[in-house]
């Protein structure tokens, strides 16, 4: 089975001028109860089919940005829209529907060690779409996309870090989300394995899924030459359509 058969149809990489963003931030700030200002006055627009790197040093606000998107955190001020819906004032009842628009992976994989690879992936469908038909086929298709079709009955502890992250990606992908969020997905991986994961994300994006990847992996960002949103001390300091980890000519130690 080809990848095209199981992924959403590809949409244009460059947004039309009148196109509505799939994600937008309008003057968003987030201050934690202890007074820490994690995000300050952020304005952003991300379009369907974008592949964005969110870069910045540790503690710059990348993870807060991701958590605000899925409403794990609530913005202190400003408005956030996902797929045309304002999430900042969304009731708890509507959060599950919002979160089903996303596929999310983290640096620490968050796999259930007592379940097999196939069961981990199926778990996402069991809790979001109970009783779904052809569950087994959908799980197998998704594991084929991430290249783990031969690891169905393996337990996470028996896999390498890269393979575990692929399982996490499969779990995030199995319900066919519109937006894929990856928070430091290569943080625990060696360079070769990291590149494999990024290639998989590029492949997912190539078929039309919007991908937002928070990272501080300079090499990957420089190699991909995709949209780069740089955050420093909670502020968006740079937003380039095809950028590198650092601004042109910017020096680093």
């Amino acid at each position: 089975m080809s990848l095209a058969a199981v992924m959403p149809p590809q949409v244009g990489q460059k947004p039309d001028p009148g196109m509505r963003p799939v994600i937008s931030f309008h003057g968003v700030s987030k201050t934690y109860p202890n007074g820490t200002e994690a995000i300050r006055d952020v304005d952003l627009a991300i379009y369907q089919g974008d592949f964005c790197f969110v870069v910045g040093a540790s503690g710059s606000g990348k993870t807060t940005l991701v958590r605000l998107l899925i409403r794990e955190e609530v913005a202190s001020t400003g408005r956030i829209f996902v797929d045309g819906q304002e999430t900042t004032r969304m009731t708890r009842r509507r959060l599950p529907k919002l979160r089903r628009k996303f596929g999310i992976v983290f640096q620490d994989y968050k796999l259930l060690t007592k379940l097999t690879v196939a069961q981990n992936v199926a778990f996402a469908l069991q809790v979001t779409k109970p009783g779904q038909r052809h569950l087994k086929e959908k799980v197998e298709e998704t594991l084929w996309i991430v290249g783990l079709e031969d690891k169905l009955d393996t337990f996470p502890d028996e896999l390498s870090g890269g393979e575990q992250q692929r399982v996490a990606i499969a779990r995030a992908l199995v319900h066919r989300p519109r937006i894929f969020l990856a928070d430091e997905p290569t943080g625990n991986l060696d360079p070769d394995t990291s590149w494999g994961i990024v290639q998989l994300l590029l492949q997912i994006n190539h078929r039309g899924t919007t991908v937002l990847m928070a990272t501080h992996n300079r090499e990957i960002v420089d190699l991909c030459r995709r949209r780069v949103i740089a955050i420093d001390s909670g502020r968006v300091v740079r937003d380039e359509v095809e950028g590198g980890y650092l601004r042109e000519g910017e020096a680093t130690i």
């Binding site: 599950p96 919002l98 979160r99 996303f102 259930l112 809790v127 979001t128 109970p130 779990r171």
Partner: peptide, 16 residues
């Protein structure tokens, strides 16, 4: 807790 965290992240409702 990990299981519940995953359930919440993938969009399971509170009652589920």
């Amino acid at each position: 807790r990990t299981e519940i965290e995953i359930m919440k992240l993938v969009g399971a409702g509170d009652w589920f």
